[in-house]
């Protein structure tokens, strides 16, 4: 009798925590801020690695340092810094952010679906469906609009409007949206990786605003 009571109490606690709610804007602002964060980190890491060379050279680009640290305009200044944005490391960084989050989310989803028992998903199509439905819903509050496959290891996920990118407007849109798409690709890779699949993922922003993710399983 006392065992049963204890179990009930524990279950209710777990339910309450999983049902804790926040304003969706919190997640949106956090994801929005990943771009400037990546740029700042890249800049910092470059400075750390080149600081030794700078000391030995005796010269330094003190002005550049000040520019990156002292911006006040909500990250926009960073986006306008050409050399910073074109650095390949940013893409990898956002990819990595997405990768880690994809890994954790798929674990949570499978954990929840199977009452606490971790099972490996064997069917790649099932995982793709989970990505298209559940993972996308969790991160972007909408599902993937279209899922196509040739049943031979290639998948195309079509998102008619990427939440973050569709609210972007400006001359740098294509370049910066490319930056954020690395994050989405990373999420997909992370999910697949956790399910012991490896894939090449590429995202393509079409002129009508839709994003096509092409996933080729290796």
């Amino acid at each position: 009798m006392s065992n049963q009571l204890h179990q009930t109490v524990v279950e209710t606690d777990v339910d309450n925590d999983f049902e804790k709610q926040i304003n969706v804007s919190c997640l949106e602002y956090l994801l929005m801020e990943l771009g400037p964060l990546a740029l700042r980190i890249t800049d910092k890491l470059e400075k750390y690695s080149s600081s030794s060379t700078r000391e030995s050279n005796g010269s330094g680009n003190g002005n550049d340092n000040k520019q990156v640290d002292d911006f006040h305009y909500g990250g926009v200044e960073l986006f306008q810094n050409e050399s910073l944005v074109s650095n390949e490391i940013n893409n990898q960084m956002l990819d990595n952010f997405g990768f880690q989050i994809g890994k954790i989310l798929i674990e949570q989803l499978i954990f929840l679906k199977n009452d606490g028992i971790s099972t490996k998903m064997d069917e790649i199509l099932d995982i793709m469906k989970i990505i298209a439905r559940d993972v996308w819903k969790m991160i972007y509050q909408k599902q993937i609009d279209n899922l196509r496959t040739n049943h031979r290891g290639t998948f195309v996920l079509i998102d008619n409007s990427h939440r973050l990118i569709s609210s972007m407007y400006g001359p740098d849109k294509h370049r910066i949206s490319g930056l954020y798409l690395n994050f989405s690709c990373g999420v997909i890779k992370g999910v697949l990786n956790q399910s012991a699949f490896k894939a090449n993922v590429e995202a393509d922003l079409k002129s009508d605003g839709s994003v096509h993710y092409t996933i080729v399983v290796i």
Partner: peptide
């Protein structure tokens, strides 16, 4: 709020001589 503030590429604090030229807005 929807078109300027939520637009990652738009400044929230405009510099002098910087205007809103967001066509959607």
């Amino acid at each position: 709020y929807e078109k300027i503030v939520k637009n990652v590429l738009s400044p929230v604090d405009f510099k002098e001589n910087e205007y809103i030229d967001n066509e959607v807005f």
